[in-house]
């Protein structure tokens, strides 16, 4: 009985640990659109931070406060916000092949 409980606790703990993968500063965006198949975008702050200083993006491209600005895919495709870099030149381009790199939900 106690062994079962231990195994169950271990299983639950590992599941919980598996969910908490977000690092400091990661942003899970809220989707304004209808509930659909596309999960919300998760912005991995750490990936960008190991490559750029704060002032490379803040506050010229993005406000300091997470979620302060409404970002649409049209904006990104027009070269604004993420699209300033994610254009296939500085960083990987936003295409139908790369949706899931951001839209993975949490």
């Amino acid at each position: 009985m106690s062994l079962k409980r231990f195994v169950l606790t271990l299983l639950l703990a590992s599941l919980w640990a598996g969910c908490v993968v977000a690092a400091d500063g990661d942003v899970v965006f809220k989707r304004e659109g209808q509930e659909g198949t596309t999960p919300p975008a998760v912005f991995p702050h750490w990936i960008h931070r190991i490559r750029y200083r704060c002032y490379a993006c803040h506050a010229s491209l993005f406000e300091m406060k997470a979620g302060a600005v409404r970002i649409t895919m049209d904006d990104i495709m027009a070269g604004k916000f993420c699209g300033v870099c994610h254009n296939g030149k500085t960083a990987w381009a936003v295409t139908f092949e790369t949706c899931a790199r951001c839209h993975k939900g949490q």
């Binding site: 931070r49 200083r53 490379a56």
Partner: peptide
């Protein structure tokens, strides 16, 4: 906790000052 200032001073990371390759540090 991650020490981001030490990460820069130790050279573990070398975050760029801007998107332009010629961008200068503040």
């Amino acid at each position: 906790m991650p020490d981001w200032v030490k990460a820069v001073s130790d050279g573990v990371i070398a975050p760029k000052p801007g998107l332009d390759p010629q961008a200068a540090r503040e």
